[in-house]
Amino acid sequence: MKTFKAFLVFLIINFGALAIGSWLMNNGPRTEWYTSLNQAPWTPAGWVFGVAWFTIMFCFSIYMAYLYIKMPTTKVKILFFMQFVLNVIWNFIFFNQHLVALGLAVIISLTVVIATFLLDFKNELKTKTLLILPYFIWLCIATSLNAYILFNN
């Protein structure tokens, strides 16, 4: 029951981050600015982003519930807070403000934070570490998409 309650808390926070980020991007993926960019040939269809983020945040919420119950340390809290802020502000920086280079710096930072979760707590969470892999893999793809836009526009 303790894990389920923690899961619900992280689920609300994580999906809240998605909602805030979506609001801050101000219809970004459908704007003329974004659609006119030279985008990477491997850019997924729009619907893939929704499915991916739903899956990522669901799995990440489970991961965080287990991690937080096992290790409610300051390091875990700070990493989670950094992840939250970086995830939310990327949308604003990239889509709303069109600051592609700064967006790349933010998404690289977010990828480093998620890689830290992945590597630093693998011994404690063992196979549950697999729950954060979708997030890390998606960020690698998203970073490549951001970089492509920066270097090809």
Rank of each mutant, 00 (worst) to 15 (best):
C59Q: 13
K77T: 04
F136I: 10
E32R: 05
I13N: 06
F80S: 07
W33P: 14
K122G: 04
K5N: 15
F92W: 15
I89R: 09
Y63I: 02
T43N: 05
A19D: 01
I149V: 15
W47S: 11
G28Y: 01
K128Y: 03
V85D: 05
L125Y: 10
A115I: 15
G21A: 07
F60H: 11
I137V: 12
L125H: 08
A105V: 06
I114N: 12
A52G: 04
M25I: 13
V9D: 09
G50N: 07
I108N: 10
L67M: 03
L18P: 06
W23T: 12
A6V: 02
T111G: 09
P134E: 08
I62V: 11
F58I: 06
G50S: 05
A6Y: 03
V112P: 00
R30K: 14
L8W: 01
L67C: 02
C140Q: 14
V9A: 15
M71D: 01
M1Q: 14
F95C: 10
T31S: 11
F80Q: 09
I107L: 09
I108P: 05
N27Y: 13
A17Y: 00
S22G: 15
V113T: 11
G50I: 03
I132A: 07
P134S: 06
W47E: 11
L24Y: 10
L150R: 04
P29G: 03
I107G: 09
F54M: 11
T31R: 00
L99A: 09
K126C: 03
F10N: 06
F80A: 08
V100D: 08
L79M: 05
K5Q: 14
W42R: 11
W23F: 15
M64Y: 08
W138A: 03
A19Q: 08
A142L: 12
K75A: 13
T35E: 03
A105K: 11
Y66R: 08
F80R: 05
Y68I: 04
L130G: 10
K75H: 13
S144W: 10
T43Q: 12
V48N: 01
G21E: 06
N87L: 14
F136S: 11
G50V: 02
T129E: 02
T43P: 01
L119R: 12
G46F: 06
A17L: 01
A65N: 04
I12V: 14
A19Y: 05
T143Q: 06
P41W: 00
I137Q: 05
W138I: 11
S61P: 02
F7W: 07
K126G: 12
N87R: 13
T43D: 11
F117D: 05
G103A: 03
V51H: 10
N27C: 11
L130T: 09
L139F: 08
C140P: 06
I56V: 12
I62P: 06
L24N: 08
F95L: 14
A65Y: 05
K5A: 15
A17V: 00
V88N: 04
G28V: 01
T31W: 01
S61V: 00
F95H: 06
M25E: 14
I137P: 09
F60P: 03
E32G: 07
L131S: 09
N123V: 12
S36F: 07
N91L: 02
L145W: 10
F15L: 13
I56T: 05
I93C: 07
I69A: 12
